[in-house]
Design a protein around this nucleic acid. Structure first.
Lengths: 167, 167
DNA sequence: TTAAATTTTCAAATATTTCTGAAAATAAAA
DNA sequence: TTTTATTTTCAGAAATATTTGAAAATTTAA
């Protein structure tokens, strides 16, 4: 298969996968492009490769930087910004998990924590709601611990154990 | 806190969480509603509780059934359909993971498998693309094994081991 | 059968998200 | 400083996704 075709397939696949996980298509595609680029790219190059506007490129590159999976690279004597992606897939997955925990698990805990001392006529309803809140809190807290392990210093130890378990 | 307020908070939180995972808000809200309902509900009750149209309710309930986390319940001598949710949070998480594997991991494998024997001028580019495809295939395959374990008969054993690891 | 109840479907309307492009802001060079 | 290069922002445009509501299909009862 020709490089150009393969590249397009890869970028599109990443875009579709991203979409179904609530990540906008362009953001995922920029990431795919940087992931397979041996060299760091400028905003212009990203715009050209993906046929997107400057504003779109700028905003999504910034979003990727906020997610911690794309870095700005400085080139001596160069005025333009260069961007490059985290290349290690495990490291990448780790970053995404950590970021999602921060963005979603924390707000979830906050809301569930607010649902307290529920009172109402229908005891069965109150009981069902209360117990689900508790169960989800327990579940989320375990997920949180798991993510902490994944992001911690001994994450390699953890991954190795995990991989042994699925052998 | 009054039951009504607590219920609303719970349903909204679930809707927001769903949205950020690529699940439409109404679908997540119907699920939340069924999750905390001691009794199975009819389409009409869902429509009233969430202020949504019949068509919307019908389509999203079906989507939840397709995901395997909501069941149709038959009531003797009743003409209407009743719906109820999987109540066990771990079982729920398991179903969602399995379903997402089927919907996303399988198509990903298919596309990556197509990217084969890449040829092109720029050797560095070809190498980077090829190696990323390989690495993602490895990663996805390990994730797949993990999900298989989670969905398998010994999933309890697996969960217990996992929980011990994060203690 | 036919009639009534219920569910599903889907074209059109609405709402939401994403994208563009040019002006404003920022940063480096002259 | 002023000029030039580059990046960011954001209002409006375009593209997508969701929702409605009523007609069609289905299912059960009479």
């Amino acid at each position: 298969m020709e490089y150009k075709e393969a590249k397009q397939k890869f970028i599109d696949a990443w875009g579709i996968l991203g979409s179904s996980w609530g990540i906008n298509k362009t953001m995922a595609q920029i990431h795919a492009l940087l992931l397979i680029s041996p060299e760091a790219l400028t905003t212009e190059e990203i715009m050209d490769e993906l046929n997107i506007s400057r504003g779109n490129a700028s905003m999504n590159v910034r979003a990727l930087i906020d997610w911690g999976i794309v870095y700005k690279e400085l080139k001596a004597g160069e005025r333009k910004d260069y961007f490059t992606s985290e290349k290690d897939i495990w490291e990448l997955a780790k970053h995404v998990l950590i970021e999602r925990r921060k963005r979603e698990l924390e707000p979830l805990f906050r809301v569930l924590g607010q649902i307290d001392d529920v009172v109402g006529e229908n005891k069965a309803q109150v009981k069902e709601l209360t117990s689900k809140v508790k169960e989800i809190e327990t579940f989320a807290s375990k997920t949180d611990k798991l993510l902490n392990r994944i992001s911690s210093a001994d994450s390699n130890w953890f991954f190795n154990k995990l991989i042994k378990m699925i052998k």
